[in-house]
Design a protein around this nucleic acid. Structure first.
Length: 488
RNA sequence: GAGCCCGUAGCUCAGCUAGGUAGAGCAGCGGCCUUUUAAGCCGUUGGUCGCGCGUUCGAUUCGCGCCGGGCUCACCA
């Protein structure tokens, strides 16, 4: 999309003129002594000492004022005003300012003072152009609102909208807080394959790619689970991975094709321990990042203070429907779904129908933090059977603000049961269920060497950031969310 | 995948109901102004109105199709 406007042309001409004056519009470096925030913070000392500061950043506004100029420059910590007078910078530099544009990257040096209106400002003694900008920035007052431009050209969004920069700093803080929390508890951060010959660990459609030299099909991971459990077998008792996962599915405000997932596994633990861990970790992160356990999300105020509500899958469902759903067969489930005008494909398993119903009637109601525990056996082929009910698994999902944030099990470590469960999945696959999981022979071999009892947890980092940042869409918390290809 | 809404200057938006090829603010350009800050004042440039087809003497405006985006629903257990 070449800007047909002559605005770009005007700037190209300015750039040429600068070159003709013997000035390099793209010099190689600039030594900066102070960030904007540092100048503001240390301004008293700086004023008294009349020490020189050197600041640099993008010029985001400029005001000519007779034989003086004001401008704001923006760096990663915020903006700082600069002020130059012709009699102080000399005629040459003063005239040069007219060749600069809002958007240019500049460096300036001088002493610090406060204007009449009280703004801390650098009194420029000299400055240099560090990079010429050829394009106009979004408007200063209304900023950049068009979501399409904000997502596609995130760099503009970051320049124009201060809160966006803050949000992504918050995202990084969340991830750092999670890392610190786990590192302190003896978890080892590891990396496992993104390209996998057999995908597994979740019900999802994978992205497929090819390895040319080997002439084989490879899948981009949909989960880390099977590799991380191999590491538990290998004796790393506590491991975690913060990783991009890829799922070839629909895109909406809670789903991006690539997203960040935390998976962690702890030997000698079960799903109860995973609940306890989450009740520690989430409040820790919230406290660290937003400084409170009361989180505003949309119209809700979420109270993250543990302990959180726990309710079994069937108690939740029965409570909403006033009937014992656990006794329902496929026909009753389909009838109930049909009543609610929820589409249910033919030939899908009972536990899927149950979960469809759950998603429709229970999930939207789960506003305050809630663990839903003890799911139907078929819902999780990698989870261990419930110690008291052989038709349930020790699994929980964590919900808040009507969103699923985490999924965890007491991990299945009985290799024979695991094989059987895989075989069930393969049966479903052959029956046409392309979401069913694929038997992984090496994973079974690993389990046969013996895996300690283990608790495992998967948590959506993007969704966690959405909550803590009060962001309505996953696109708001991913720097470059997936978009259809732009035409140029 | 379905429904609804949107696409007009670099940005933020009017105009479209009742068809006569476009306006504002900011930005830009020229001028004045040596503590301004949404600086101000005077002057001024800038648009294949998302793309295509149709209806019409005439389409930014009406219809259809396409492209892109947003929201909702469905799918993603």
């Amino acid at each position: 999309m070449e800007p047909k406007s002559d605005l770009r042309q005007q700037r190209l001409e300015k750039l040429e003129k600068l070159r003709k004056k013997g000035l390099d519009p793209f010099p190689h470096n600039f030594s900066r002594t102070h960030l904007s925030a540092e100048v503001l913070q240390e301004f008293k000392d700086l004023m008294v000492s009349e020490r020189q500061v050197r600041v640099a950043g993008r010029m985001i506004s400029a005001r000519e004022h007779g034989r003086s100029n004001f401008a704001h420059i923006l760096d990663r910590t915020g903006k700082i005003q600069i002020y130059m007078r012709q009699e102080e910078v000399g005629e040459e530099l003063f005239t040069l300012f007219r060749f600069l544009d809002v958007g240019d990257i500049i460096g300036a040096w001088g002493s610090v003072f406060k204007t009449k209106t009280g703004e801390v400002t650098v009194r420029v003694q000299g400055y240099s152009l560090l990079a010429k900008s050829l394009r106009l920035l979004p408007e200063k007052w209304h900023g950049l609102r068009d979501k399409e431009i904000r997502y596609r050209q995130r760099y503009l969004d970051l320049i124009a909208n201060v809160h966006v920069k803050e949000l992504f700093q918050l995202r990084t803080q969340v991830i750092r807080a999670v890392r610190c929390f786990l590192d302190e508890r003896g978890f080892l951060e590891v990396e496992t394959p993104v390209l996998q010959p057999i995908y597994g660990g979740a019900f999802a459609q994978p992205f497929v790619t090819r390895h040319k030299a080997l002439g084989i099909k490879l899948f981009l991971r949909i989960a880390d689970e099977l590799y991380l459990k191999r590491l538990i077998v290998g004796g790393f008792d506590r491991v975690y991975e913060l990783s991009k996962n890829f799922r070839n599915e629909g895109i909406d405000r809670d789903h991006n094709p690539e997203f960040t997932l935390l998976e962690l596994y702890q030997a000698y633990a079960d799903y109860e321990d995973m609940m306890a861990l989450m009740e520690e970790m989430i409040p820790h992160v919230a406290q660290e990042v937003v400084g409170s356990l009361q989180i505003r999300y949309g119209d809700h105020v979420l109270d993250l203070t543990p302990p959180w509500k726990r309710i079994s899958f069937f108690d939740a469902l029965n409570g909403r429907l006033g009937q014992d759903v656990s006794q329902w067969g496929v026909r009753e489930l389909r009838e109930s779904l049909a009543q609610r005008e929820i589409e249910a494909r033919e030939g899908i398993h009972r536990s899927r129908l149950l979960e469809s119903l759950f998603d429709a009637v229970v999930e939207p109601e789960l506003i305050q933090p809630t663990f839903v525990i003890d799911y139907p056996l078929e819902s999780a082929p990698l989870a261990k059977r419930h110690r008291k009910h052989s038709d349930l698994v020790e699994r929980f999902e964590f919900f808040t603000a009507g969103k699923e944030l985490a999924n965890a099990f007491s991990e299945l470590n009985d290799p024979l049961d695991q094989r059987q469960r895989f075989q069930e999945q393969m049966k479903l696959r052959r029956a046409g269920d392309d979401q069913a999981q694929v038997l992984d022979e090496d994973f079974l071999r690993a389990l046969e060497y013996g895996m300690p009892p283990t608790g495992g947890l998967g948590m959506g980092i993007d969704r966690l950031v959405m909550l803590l940042a009060d962001a309505p869409s996953i696109r708001d918390v991913i720097l470059f969310p997936h978009m259809r290809q732009e035409k140029f």
